[in-house]
Amino acid sequence: MVEKGDKNFSSDKGKTASKLAASKEESLKGKDSAPVNKTRHIQVDSSDSEYEGFVDERSPASAKASGKASSDLKSGKKKVSFESLKTGRKTSFETPAAKGDWGKGGKDFNAGKAGGKGSLPQATAVKPRLTEIELKLELELPKNARLLMDCEAAEILQEIEEHKTILSEDPKVKFPESFNKVLQYTKFGGHYINSQSARKVLETLKINGVNDGEICMIGNICPETVEEVYALLPSLKANKHKNEGPIREVLASLAKVKSSK
């Protein structure tokens, strides 16, 4: 994972360099025919950064307006990041030439930067951010929603099941199929002796900036090592220096309340 990120990063770097070259060309052309703003994107073809420029032009306008576009981007994420790797390789060929332009391009650097906001570097950034966003998203669910760990849900559902079997002498009253499925699922995920002790342990992570969703996931996954936590919950990596110690402690205490299955 980290390796990948590194790669993307370096490819980004290479790209900005190549973009500098490209934007330089652009600006030269721009001097010749200043008002022709749109066509310049088409004029300089063959270079990858131009493709970016095109997407860039589209994205700020449309991404917000249509969720579809952004979801397209997301779904196309895999492809895009692959492409970025490819372009990364390509640009690395180009860099020596591009490097020469580094010093000169004072103004052009800005232009290059603006182009740099194009979709490819963004798309690579989207990948690690995606899980973060989604985890936050669930917290944006209605205010009155409270996340439950699997084991907590299991306790509630078991209670309901007992309750219902007593209540319904009527054989006509049956549980929907999904209820049984869920009940089975929660039993299968039951890692702890009781959910309260697990919750109490995990709750201590809250003061270290770990959000409810992440706490809940740690509780459900029942990880053994800190590495496992970071691999499965990449959003936690951002505050690694702050939360690594507490997470380590929590995992140790969690191990104590684990049921021997």
């Binding site: 899980t131 985890l135 998203l137 929603a145 559902l157 299968f188 969703g213 459900n220």
Partner: peptide, 15 residues
């Protein structure tokens, strides 16, 4: 009520 929803990025154990 108790609701169940999978979220993107979530880790699940499945059969």
């Amino acid at each position: 009520c108790v609701a169940f929803r999978p979220f993107k990025g979530e880790i699940l154990e499945a059969v």
